[in-house]
């Protein structure tokens, strides 16, 4: 049982950090399809800088800085150059995936994976069998709560929501909607960097090209599934992690009797089913267009 929970936390934590980045962008009115790109930049930077400097603190700072800078670039393209968000987001993902592959090849030659001598600090023996998890797993609930507080219980959160839902209303009370979107994307950049760092250095200490394997898109899906609400989206991300972990269990259990590919596809099948279910419960397409629908009372 512990094994399963550890597996869920291990795969769920990076996903949840990136999902929170998607939530804040969505609330500010941006469909953030660049999450995948930011996440892999975070993952790559963490491992490369640990290898180069031997310091986790420096590695995290560099990862965060890079992701925030890339987010500012994304904001500039979307907000100031008025580019289509979807296209710009996919472009950002392409930049992340291609850029990190290029960086690894430029530094290490044709090698597809880089391992660092050590990863993020672990929880340690104090936590028993959970000791192998990184401290970012423990901090994750704090980030979720913090995001909820920011979005749902502060004036900044209201202005951010208004920026996404009714920008004219926001401008009418003097809100600079462009700056609100910038701050949302910058906060998102920080979260993607942390998510990427946790993915590469949380339980592993290795970066391999394309290692995010669609997790950024899965996070985006969780945002929609969770109706743009921080808690809802977190549970959606957790749900994906649970399905993924059960898929691995099922492989061990059934072995060759069930096609391997079917089991690998299980999380994605569950995603489609989950989105269908959430749309059904909340009334068709409105669930997606009115993402502010799910409210805590």
């Amino acid at each position: 049982m512990d094994d399963t929970i550890i597996a869920i936390l291990r795969s769920g934590t990076p996903l949840i950090y990136v999902t929170l980045a998607g939530v804040i962008a969505q609330r500010a009115g941006i469909w953030h399809l660049g999450l995948e790109g930011l996440m892999i930049i975070g993952a790559c930077a963490t491992i490369l800088v640990i290898t180069a400097t031997g310091s986790v603190a420096i590695a995290l700072s560099v990862a965060i800085l890079l992701c925030v800078l890339t987010s500012i670039l994304f904001w500039f393209v979307v907000e100031k150059l008025k580019a289509n968000q979807i296209i710009a987001g996919l472009g950002l993902t392409g930049l992340g995936l291609g850029g990190t592959t290029f960086a690894v090849e430029a530094i290490f030659g044709s090698q597809a994976a880089v391992s660092a001598p050590f990863g993020l600090p672990r929880l340690g023996p104090w936590f028993g069998s959970f000791g192998s998890l990184s401290i970012l797993v423990l901090l994750m609930p704090l980030f979720v709560f913090g995001m909820w507080l920011l979005l749902r219980r502060t004036r900044f959160g209201l202005r951010l929501a208004a920026t996404g839902e009714h920008p004219f209303a926001a401008r009418s009370v003097g809100v600079r909607t462009d700056l609100i979107r910038l701050s949302a994307l910058m906060i998102g950049g920080v979260l993607c960097a942390i998510g990427g760092a946790e993915l590469a250095a949380g339980s592993l200490q290795i970066f391999s090209t394309n290692m995010t394997a669609g997790r950024g898109f899965m996070a985006f899906t969780a945002v929609i599934f969770g109706a743009g609400h921080p808690i809802g989206a977190t549970f959606a991300a957790l749900f994906f992690a649970i399905v993924g972990a059960l898929g691995i269990r099922a492989q061990l259990l059934f072995g060759d009797r069930v096609p391997h590919d079917l089991l690998l596809g299980l999380p994605y099948i569950a995603t489609v089913f989950g989105i269908w279910l959430s749309a059904k419960l909340r009334g068709g397409t409105r669930a997606i267009s009115n993402f502010g629908e799910l409210r805590d009372s």
Partner: peptide, 23 residues
């Protein structure tokens, strides 16, 4: 110019100029 998903109280607060975290 009021976001439709807001409550009346939220619509007031969003136009106000003060206040930190609230319940």
């Amino acid at each position: 110019a009021l976001p439709p998903s807001f409550t009346v109280a939220e619509a007031m607060q969003f136009g106000a100029t003060d206040g930190g975290v609230y319940s």
